[in-house]
Amino acid sequence: MRYPASEKLEIIRLVEQSHLPVRRTLDKLGIPTTTFYRWYDRYQRLGTAGLRDRTSGPGRVWNRIPDAVRQDIVALALERPELSPRELAMTFTDTRRYFVSEASVYRLLKAHDLITSPAFVVIKAADAFKDQTTRPNQLWQTDFTYLKVIGWGWFYLSTILDDFSRYIIAWKLCTTMKADDVTDTLKLALAASGCDTARIVRGGPRNPDRMLSWSATV
C-alpha cells in the first residue's frame, strides 16, 4: 500500500510519541519496521521531501490548505512562539474552527524556517539509552494526550508513567493543560505508589526537549 507523504509523517509522529516500543507501535499500525526506518532515514536526511514518492510526472495535492489559512497559521505561530506544532494545530482548530493536523502545521512552519530542530527523536532498537533506570519509582515521566469530543470540546489526558516498568501509575482527564493539572496527577501517583516526595527534572533520557520527569523517593 502506498502512503502519501503527509500520512508517512503522521505515522512517524505517532511512533515518536508512543509509550510503546517502536516495533509494538508499528505492529498496531500495520507498518513493517523496515518500511518505517526507510521512511525515517530519508526524513532525517531530506526532511519532508524525502517522504514523497518518486513519480514520473507532477502530482496535484487535492487537500492543500488554502493560502489564506496558511497565512493565518503562520501569523498565529509568530504570535504564540511558545506553542509546539502539536499545540498550535490544536489551538488553531479550536479557535478558528478549521481543522489542521499537526503534520500540516509542522510542514508549514518548517517551510518558513520557524522550526530549527526536530521536535522528537526516534531511537532505533540497536541503540541504548545512556542513563537507564534500574528500579521502579526511580524516574517518572509525565505528558498530556489531547482529544476532541464532538459536541463537547477538547479534553486532555494527563498521565504519569514509571520509566522502568512502563506502567502508568496515575492519570487524570482534564479540561486544561495547566500546572495544577500536572500537580494533581502527581499527587495521585504519590498516593498510588507509596512514595513521599518527587523531585522535578526538566527533560529526561527519553525525550529531553519536551518531557517533564520526576525523581521519586519512598
Rank of each mutant, 00 (worst) to 15 (best):
V122G: 01
T133R: 09
Y106I: 04
F120V: 15
D131T: 07
F129M: 08
L109R: 14
A111L: 02
K124D: 13
T116Q: 04
D127E: 15
I115P: 02
D131P: 03
A125G: 09
F120T: 12
Q132D: 02
A125I: 06
A103H: 03
H112R: 15
V105N: 04
V121E: 15
L108C: 04
A125Y: 09
P118H: 04
Y106M: 01
P118A: 05
V105S: 01
S117F: 14
T116C: 06
K124H: 12
T116K: 05
V122Y: 04
A126Q: 10
V122A: 02
A111V: 03
V105L: 04
L109G: 02
T116F: 01
I115L: 11
K130E: 06
E102W: 07
R107P: 02
A128K: 11
D127R: 13
I123S: 11
D131S: 05
K124S: 12
L108T: 14
H112M: 09
I115W: 06
A128H: 13
P118M: 02
A111Q: 13
P118R: 07
I115C: 02
D127A: 14
L109C: 01
A128V: 05
T116N: 06
K130G: 09
V122S: 01
V121R: 15
A126Y: 13
D127L: 11
T116L: 06
F129W: 11
E102S: 05
I123Y: 12
F120W: 14
P118Q: 02
I123W: 09
D127M: 11
F120G: 00
E102Q: 10
A128C: 09
A111M: 10
T133I: 07
V122P: 00
K124P: 11
P118I: 05
H112C: 10
T133A: 13
I115F: 03
K130W: 03
F129V: 05
A119L: 08
S117V: 15
V121Q: 13
R107D: 14
A126T: 15
A103Y: 02
V121G: 07
Q132V: 08
R107K: 12
A111S: 13
F120M: 15
V121D: 10
R107F: 07
V122N: 05
Q132E: 04
A126P: 02
T116E: 01
K130T: 07
S117W: 03
K110N: 15
I115T: 05
A128P: 09
D113P: 00
Y106L: 14
S104D: 00
T116H: 01
L109E: 13
S104R: 11
A128D: 12
K110Q: 10
K130Q: 10
F120H: 12
I115A: 08
K130V: 05
V105T: 00
E102L: 09
A103M: 07
V122C: 03
L114W: 11
K110A: 06
F129D: 10
V121Y: 15
A126M: 15
A126K: 13
A125Q: 05
L108Q: 00
A126R: 08
D131G: 07
